[in-house]
Nucleic acid binder design. Structure first.
Length: 580
RNA sequence: GCGCCCGUAGCUCAGCUGGAUAGAGCGCCGCCCUCCGGAGGCGGAGGUCACAGGUUCGACUCCUGUCGGGCGCGCCA
C-alpha cells in the first residue's frame, strides 16, 4: 500500500519535472509518514515543503500542483493539503477491504515476498562451549532467531550458523580435569557444566602440575592426538546437548545441523595467513603476524593492528572469522551475512569486514552487517547477576520464569486443569522473558525485571497471549455455526476502521524489521493491534450483533486479527495458546 | 589519549528518512460490568527531550561543544 502510494507520487514528481515546475536535475527522496493524528489521514508527505525551495514556489501552491499531478487511481479516496503544506492521503475503503480480503485468503497474510530471494547467512547464539549458557547468551539467541524467521517469511533462504566456541586454551584445562577424574564420575560431573568448569579452573589455579598437564593437552589436542580428541569430543557433545536443551525450551530454531564450530575452520587458518601474505597485507610486529589497516588508527594516529597469528604460532578469533566469512560467501552462497553479536565487538567486526573485502575473502556484491545489542541489566543498572553475585545460568533463569508464571496464573480463576495450567505457565514464563527482550530496542541496554515482564498489563507477552485467546474464544463460542466468509467487510465504526488500518500495516512492519534487524517494531505493532482490537471488541458487538452482514464482517475482522497475532508472535518465536 | 554507544514523564520503555499538539505501560486520580473472557475499555494529571550553541520554513532526531554514564582500543573469544 505504501509502495503503491510512493509509486503514484514518483509519477507525479516525474510529471512536474517534465513541466519544469521542479528542476529536472533535482533528486527527490519521497518521504511518507504514518501520521500519529487520525485527522491527518492514513499517510502524509512533506514533499511540498522539501521541494518548495528548489522549485522557487511556496509550499502550499506546490502541494496543490503535486496533488493535481497524482495520476487517477483507486488507491486513494482523498488528498488534503494541511498546515504549512503537508499532503494528507486517505486510503479508499474499497482498497482497504480488498487488502483485508487478500490477507484473509492468503496463507502468508499476503505479505510481499522478495522478488529475488537472497541467501542470508545468520550468525547467532554462538556460545562458548567451555561453560554452560548464561544470561549473556540470551539476546543473540532470541533476537537472531526472530530476525531469521522474519527473513524466511519474506521469502529469503536463511542459513543459520551457530559459530560455537569449541577451541581454545581453556579446553586444555577441562580435558585435564576429565582425565583426572575417572570416566564415570567425569560423566556425572559433566552433567553440570558450570560446576565442572569452576572445579577445573580451581584445580588449574591451585596446582602447577595440573596446569602443566592442561597446557600439554592443548598442544596435543591441536596436533590431533587421538586420546585428546576423544575426551574433547565427549565434552563437546555434552555441552552441545546442554545448548540444545536451552534452544528447545526457548523455542529457538537452532539444531545440531546449524552448528559450524570454530574448530571446523582449523585447517583453513594457515591458508588465511598465506592469503594475507600473498596480498602483501601481512606485517610481523613483535613476533606476531598483524594486518595494519589505514582505516583504523590507534593512540598517536598510528594504525591499529589486527592480530591474526600469535608469536607462538597460534591463531586468533580474527583469523577464524575471516575463514568463516569466506566460507559463508563461497560455500554457503551468502548474499548477506548477518551477525548477532554483542555490541562490544563492533570494532572487531568493522575491522574484519573491511579486511575481508580488501583481501578478497569476499568478492563482488555482498552485504556484511554486525547487529550489536546491549547488555541485560539488573535493577541496579549493572549487568544482571544472580543473587549470589555470579552469572545466571540460562537454564535456571528459565526455571524461575516458569515458576513465577505459574504463581501468576494461580492467582487468577481458571477452568484449566492443574496439568494444563502448568503447560500454560511454561509458555507464559518463557515467552515473557523473550518478549521483554525483543520488545526493547536492540541496540540499548535494558533492565531485566520480573514484575514488568510477567504482568498482563502493558506491552508484555502475557497481555498479547491473553489478547489472542480472547479473540480465539469468539470462534470457540461460535463453534460449528457457519458464517459467511465471503461477506463484505464493513468499516463504518471508527474502531473497525482503526483496526482495519492496523491489520493492513503488517506487511510494512515486517519489512522494517528485516531492514533494520529490529524485532521491537513488530512487538510495538502487535501491542497496538491488540489494543485496537480490544477497543473494537468493547464497542462493537460481534456474536451479539443481530445484523447478519455486520456480524459476518466483524467475525472476519476478528479472524484476521487472530491470524495476524498468531503469525506475528510466531515470527518472534512465541507460540500462542488456545486457552489460558 | 583516541573511538563507539547512551542521557525522553516518578519508574520501565517507544519515537521510523528532520515534520503537525513528544507517545505507551506501570504508579496516581476519575469513570464504564442487564452485554461475546474486566487478565478489559474510556478519560485526567504528570515533560526545559542532560545542558549550551548552530543548520533549517521546521530539531528528541542533523552538526559543534560541555556535563554525566557505559563500552572498546596487540598476541582471550
Amino acid at each position: 500500500m505504501k509502495e503503491q502510494l510512493e509509486q503514484l507520487l514518483a509519477e507525479a514528481i516525474g510529471q512536474l519535472k517534465a513541466q519544469g515546475t521542479i528542476p529536472a536535475d533535482h533528486s527527490v527522496n519521497i518521504q511518507l509518514d504514518r501520521p500519529r493524528d487520525k485527522s491527518h489521514g492514513d499517510f502524509a508527505t512533506n514533499l511540498a515543503l522539501m521541494l518548495a525551495k528548489p522549485a522557487k514556489s511556496n509550499p502550499r501552491q506546490l502541494a496543490e500542483a503535486i496533488v493535481a499531478a497524482v495520476p487517477e487511481n483507486s488507491l486513494l479516496s482523498k488528498m488534503d493539503i494541511a498546515g504549512p503544506g503537508f499532503i494528507n492521503f486517505t486510503i479508499s475503503q474499497d482498497q482497504l477491504k480488498d487488502q483485508l480480503t487478500a490477507m484473509l485468503n492468503s496463507d502468508s497474510l499476503n505479505v510481499d515476498v522478495a522478488k529475488e530471494s537472497k541467501t542470508i547467512v545468520i550468525d547467532y547464539s554462538s556460545p562458548n562451549l567451555a561453560k554452560e549458557m548464561h544470561v549473556g547468551h540470551l539476546r543473540s539467541a532470541i533476537i537472531g532467531d526472530a530476525v531469521s524467521r522474519v527473513c524466511e517469511f519474506l521469502g529469503h533462504k536463511v542459513v543459520r550458523q551457530n559459530h560455537v566456541g569449541d577451541w581454545g586454551t581453556q579446553f586444555g584445562m577441562l580435558l585435564a580435569y576429565m582425565e583426572a577424574l575417572d570416566n564415570q564420575s567425569a560423566e556425572y560431573e559433566l552433567s553440570n557444566l558450570e560446576t565442572f568448569y569452576k572445579a577445573a579452573k580451581q584445580r588449574f589455579d591451585d596446582s602447577e602440575e595440573f596446569a602443566d598437564r592442561a597446557r600439554q593437552l592443548v598442544v596435543k589436542l591441536q596436533s590431533g592426538d587421538e586420546y585428546c580428541l576423544k575426551l574433547w569430543n565427549q565434552f563437546i557433545d555434552v555441552s552441545l546437548s546442554h545448548c540444545q536443551e536451552v534452544y528447545d525450551r526457548l523455542g529457538v530454531k537452532l539444531t545440531r545441523a546449524d552448528v559450524m564450530a570454530e574448530s571446523a575452520y582449523n585447517d583453513k587458518l594457515p591458508g588465511v595467513i598465506e592469503h594475507l601474505r600473498g596480498k602483501g597485507l601481512l606485517t610481523e610486529d613483535q613476533g606476531a603476524q598483524c594486518v595494519f589497516l589505514e582505516e583504523y588508527k590507534g593512540k598517536e594516529g598510528e594504525p591499529l593492528p589486527i592480530i591474526v597469528q600469535k608469536k607462538g604460532g597460534g591463531y586468533l578469533y580474527a583469523t577464524t572469522d575471516l575463514a568463516a566469512i569466506e566460507y559463508r560467501q563461497k560455500q554457503l552462497g551468502g548474499d548477506h551475512l548477518m551477525y548477532f553479536v554483542d555490541a562490544r565487538q563492533a570494532l572487531h567486526f568493522d575491522q574484519i569486514f573491511t579486511l575481508a573485502r580488501k583481501a578478497g575473502f569476499v568478492e563482488g556484491e555482498i552485504q556484511l552487517d554486525h547487529y550489536g545489542f546491549g547488555t541485560v541489566m539488573g535493577k541496579d543498572g549493572k549487568p544482571y547477576k544472580s543473587r549470589d553475585g555470579g552469572v545466571t545460568k540460562l537454564a535456571d533463569l528459565l526455571d524461575e520464569a516458569e515458576r513465577r508464571a505459574l504463581e501468576l496464573l494461580q492467582q487468577k480463576t481458571t477452568d484449566l486443569t492443574e496439568e494444563q495450567q502448568k503447560r500454560v505457565a511454561e509458555v507464559v514464563g518463557i515467552s515473557s522473558v523473550k518478549y521483554a527482550d525483543l520488545s526493547k530496542n536492540r541496540t540499548s541496554d535494558y533492565i531485566f525485571d520480573w514484575n514488568h515482564m510477567l504482568t498482563f498489563e502493558g506491552n508484555t507477552a502475557p497481555y498479547l497471549l491473553y489478547a489472542y485467546t480472547r479473540v480465539n474464544s469468539i470462534f470457540y463460542r461460535l463453534g460449528d455455526t457457519a458464517f459467511d466468509r465471503d461477506a463484505d467487510i464493513i468499516l463504518n465504526d471508527e474502531r473497525e476502521l482503526a483496526l482495519a488500518n492496523q491489520l493492513v500495516r503488517f506487511n510494512e512492519v515486517l519489512h522494517q524489521v528485516q531492514d533494520k534487524a529490529m524485532p521491537h517494531f513488530l512487538c510495538g505493532y502487535l501491542f497496538d493491534l491488540a489494543g485496537r482490537f480490544s477497543s473494537f471488541y468493547e464497542a462493537c458487538p460481534i456474536l451479539n450483533q443481530e445484523d447478519e452482514a455486520l456480524r459476518n464482517s466483524r467475525l472476519k475482522l476478528s479472524m484476521l486479527t487472530a491470524n495476524v497475532l498468531k503469525q506475528g508472535l510466531d515470527l518472534l518465536g512465541i507460540p500462542t495458546l488456545e486457552k489460558m
